[in-house]
């Protein structure tokens, strides 16, 4: 829990420093998207710090390409 608090505190500082540049652009859309991404980033960092297992997208890619990859993998492994 202590770690999470530290991360959130750092995030607040980063936000204060960073948001100024976004403000300068004077675009509402920029601000909205920025905040959305900031929350996304923060939640990922917090999840990581809390040692929650986040599934890796690599598994998905492996599943998709399995039919192509497997036969070539087999023939490549012959030469190991």
């Amino acid at each position: 829990m202590f770690k999470v608090i530290v991360v959130v505190l750092i995030a607040v500082v980063v936000f204060l420093l960073d948001f100024a540049t976004v403000k300068k652009s004077k675009s509402k859309k920029d601000k909205k998207v920025y905040i959305a991404f900031f929350i996304l980033a923060l939640s990922i960092v917090v999840l990581h710090v809390m040692e929650v297992n986040i599934p890796t997208p690599i598994e998905g890619i492996k599943q998709i390409y399995q039919p192509v990859a497997e036969p070539i993998r087999k023939s490549l492994e012959k030469y190991l």
């Binding site: 675009s27 998207v33 980033a41």
Partner: peptide
């Protein structure tokens, strides 16, 4: 996202 600047999302993306 049709943003005004390339820098807007840089910080959150870096952490991601």
């Amino acid at each position: 996202f049709n943003l005004k600047s390339t820098k807007t999302l840089s910080t959150p993306l870096a952490f991601i």
